[in-house]
């Protein structure tokens, strides 16, 4: 904990000392940044399990397979919205809301009674409420950045019958490109990150690492 605080303090000190460095002709931008955009979240295998029945065997033979299932969560496109407050020119604290609707697809097969193989589908609404610390490498027109943070996950099935909640941690980086030099300015943002989620749609109760990429529009004032 102490080590984490020390690192954070160092970052803040650096940002403070750098906050006066703006590129020529530029006005110091405002401290608030809002953004919105689209996000793509990668898919993953979500477990496979067979529907089995105990075999009629005194030797403990293999169970009878009624049918097999293998599950996958498809990659999904969603949107996010962010609000950031700049403590200086380089460091900002950012609040995040992200929404996506991945599909959970279960393929059935090898049916004992020859039922036609099917893909059984369910849609999950996934909400992420989180926050990040963002460090910007410079304060010019093109600004690379890295960020890290965490959040709270809330997922509902398509009937809103079952709610799953969990925690999330993420880290990544990207670039912001500004179109103006005034205190208020527009820009665009592209980023990629790894998101570690304690709960995800699917049938395996384990933490997963998901890759996400996003792009959006920025307004700083």
């Amino acid at each position: 904990m102490n080590r984490a605080l020390a690192v954070l303090a160092a970052v803040l000190l650096v940002s403070t000392s750098a906050s006066a460095q703006t590129y020529p002709g530029s006005t110091t931008p405002g401290r608030i940044e809002i953004s919105g955009g689209v996000v793509w979240i990668g898919g993953y295998e979500a477990g496979s399990r067979d529907a089995t029945e105990s075999a009629n065997s005194s030797t403990g033979g293999a169970p009878l397979t009624l049918f097999t299932t293998s599950s996958r969560v498809s990659s999904a496109t969603g949107f996010d919205a962010r609000v950031a407050y700049f403590f200086g020119s380089r460091v900002a604290a950012e609040g995040l809301f992200q929404f996506s609707q991945p599909q959970l697809r279960v393929k059935t097969g090898d049916d004992f009674e020859s039922a036609t193989a099917a893909t059984v589908v369910g849609t999950v609404s996934s909400y992420l409420f989180g926050g990040s610390l963002v460090y910007h490498f410079g304060s010019g027109r093109v600004v690379p950045f890295v960020h890290g943070g965490g959040g709270y996950l809330r997922m509902l099935d398509e009937d809103n019958a079952d709610v799953t909640t969990g925690s999330e941690a993420h880290g990544g980086g990207g670039v912001k490109i500004w179109f103006g030099t005034g205190k208020s300015r527009l820009g665009v943002r592209a980023d990629a990150q790894v998101s570690s989620r304690s709960k995800t749609p699917g049938f395996e109760d384990k933490r997963r690492m998901l890759g996400t990429v996003g792009a959006g529009v920025l307004y700083r004032f």
Partner: peptide, 19 residues
């Protein structure tokens, strides 16, 4: 009739009934 799967996953709520 032929055995068949329902095409959607069905979510069972706690203490309630699915759609």
């Amino acid at each position: 009739f032929k055995p068949a799967f329902y095409e959607r996953l069905v979510t069972v709520p706690r203490g309630g009934t699915s759609r």
